[in-house]
Every structure is written in C-alpha cells, then in structure tokens.
Amino acid sequence: MRLGVALDLSSQEPVRPQVDRTVTMLARAERHGFDSAWVGESYHAASQPFHLPSALVILGHLAGRTSLALGSAVLLLRAYSPRKLAYEAALLDQLCGGKLTLGLGLGSPEVAQRVGLPASGPAGAAFDATLKLLRAAWSAEVAIPPPLQRGGPQILVGGKVPASARRAATLADGFYGATNYCDDLLFKQSTAYWSCRGGSGGVVATTRFCVVHEDAATARELAARHLKAATDYYTARGSWLGAGGPAELELPMVGTPDEIDTTIDRYARAGVTSVQLRVAPFGTPPEVARHTLDLVGRHVLPNWHGTTTSDATSPTTTAETTR
C-alpha cells in the first residue's frame, strides 16, 4: 500500500501563499515517508473551496520544490487538446525526474466550454482515442522532449460505470476512485478492474479526506468543523456516489491511528493499492493538518512500508502480503 497526500488548493484565496504552505506541508510528509503529492482540478464559474484550474501548472511549480512523486487526481480531458496534453505531460515528467502519474477523467461539457474547446462527440470513444494518442506520442517520441519515463507516465482513469473499469484495465495502467466515491462503489470498481486485468500488474488508487487524532471523538469533531466547506461542496451537488447511486457522506479516514490502519487494511483487501490523504482542505488549521500527518507518519505508515509495489497483482495477492 502506497500513501500520498492530496492537495486542496482553493480559488477563494490567493494562490501563491497556499502553494507555499503546501510545500512546507509536503516537506513534513516526505520526512514521514509519504511517497507522493496529488493535485486535482476544476473549472468553476465562481470561487470554490477547491480545486484550481490547470493542475499541470501547479504540478510544474511543485516539481522544483519537492522530491515527492507527483500525480493529477484528476486532470479533466475536456479542458485539453490531446496533442498539447501529450507535450505538456512529457515536459512535466522531465521536470519531476520521471515521477509523474497522470490521473485522467473526462469532465463535463461545461468544462470544455469554459476553456473554449468543443464538447461534441461520443464521450467514451473520445476518451479511448486520447489514451491511445498519448501512448503513441510518448512511445514514438513524437513529443519533444519526450517523457523521462520510457513509454510515458503511468495513466490512471476513473469513472463510476463498468466501462470505466474496463478502460482503466485495458487502455491505462490503473483505476482512480474520486473522493466522492463511497467505499462500496470504490470496491465494486476495484473488483471489476482486477477482473478485466486478469489479476496481474495494476494500480487502484483513491483520495480520501483525513483527520486523525489520538481521541476518536476529537477526530470526528475536528472533521465536522474543518471539512465542512469541502464536504458541503459535494453534498450540495448530490455528488456522493455509492454502488447503487447517490449516497450519504462517508469519512472512513477520520479517527485514531488504529482506526485508520484498520481502514487501510480493508482497502488493501479490496484491491486498493494507493491512497491519497486530503489532510488540509480549505479552512483546516495548519496545526490540525500537521497533527494528522504526524500521527499517520509515526503510527500508520510504518505498518505499510514495503507491503506492495506500485504494480500490484490482484486483491487476493495484495491482501496476503499486506500484514
């Protein structure tokens, strides 16, 4: 199991001070043994508690300020020309020393309109074509400079329907479950992904809000107070998703270190190989985020170092090797 940090960068306050605070937090995460930093993106008509547009710009800035691996969680394809994306991702892979993972989602037609790109065409077919184009451009070194990683960065794709898991298994390197995917949906997609993958070589990653404290009640009180702006964003849009459709808010990564460790064990047994912790959403005091990182770093991460590689084999194999 690999543990990273997912960054919340809001459009409700100036960007540079947020990024500077983030770099300080990432230095702490790196000292504890977290392996990666992940940035999402959104294109809003008004300021929101997360995310910023153009995640590659933020990641390019972070590439010179942290040695952690970098990932997008997720980039919205409808905001990009596929050929331009091939060049930009290749360049970013060079900047971060060949440690880029490209998480991709389609995004809504509104995203395309906001950046002046056409939103027409069959979504699934367009997504598949883009994945093939990226691989071809990186493998044939059409993008100059080419990515540092041979064949290009790992690609993870998300989605809540069976076709998404199949796409992740056949055209990409792994599946990415968003924060708003409740556990039953995440596990359903993980099972479908591994089934399509034939049980070998792959990644199932997800992002989760995370508040940790020595006292369980205190952790939940802090989460209720400081995660509210971010969780209300999903709730107001009816965006919490379970395997059967709209669902209620879940916070499986809120609690004591022992509770977090138990949750990670459950995830590993369901085939999840990578979890990104959102420890500092908009409005979270820095000392709360630091305390979460410290507790996870001291009491949870040591239990998972070396338990899987970045290229796991199957839920069964992962579960058998994690503890």
Rank of each mutant, 00 (worst) to 15 (best):
M1I: 06
M1N: 03
L9H: 02
L9T: 01
E13D: 01
P14D: 10
Q18H: 09
V23Q: 04
L26W: 06
F34I: 04
W38K: 06
A45P: 01
H51W: 13
A55E: 05
L59S: 04
S67R: 12
S81M: 01
P82D: 09
L95Y: 07
C96M: 12
A112C: 05
G121A: 14
K132I: 08
A137R: 13
S139M: 06
E141T: 11
L156W: 14
K160P: 12
V161M: 13
A163Q: 12
R166A: 14
A168Y: 10
A172F: 11
G177P: 04
A178D: 05
D183K: 07
Y193C: 06
R197L: 03
G198L: 10
V203Q: 12
D215K: 09
R220V: 04
H226E: 12
L227I: 08
K228W: 08
A230I: 09
D232F: 05
T235N: 14
E250A: 01
P252I: 09
T256H: 03
V272R: 01
L277E: 10
G283P: 00
P285F: 05
L295D: 07
H299F: 10
V300K: 02
L301W: 09
H305C: 06
S310Y: 11
D311S: 11
D311G: 03
A312Y: 09
P315I: 05
T317Q: 14
T322H: 12
R323K: 09
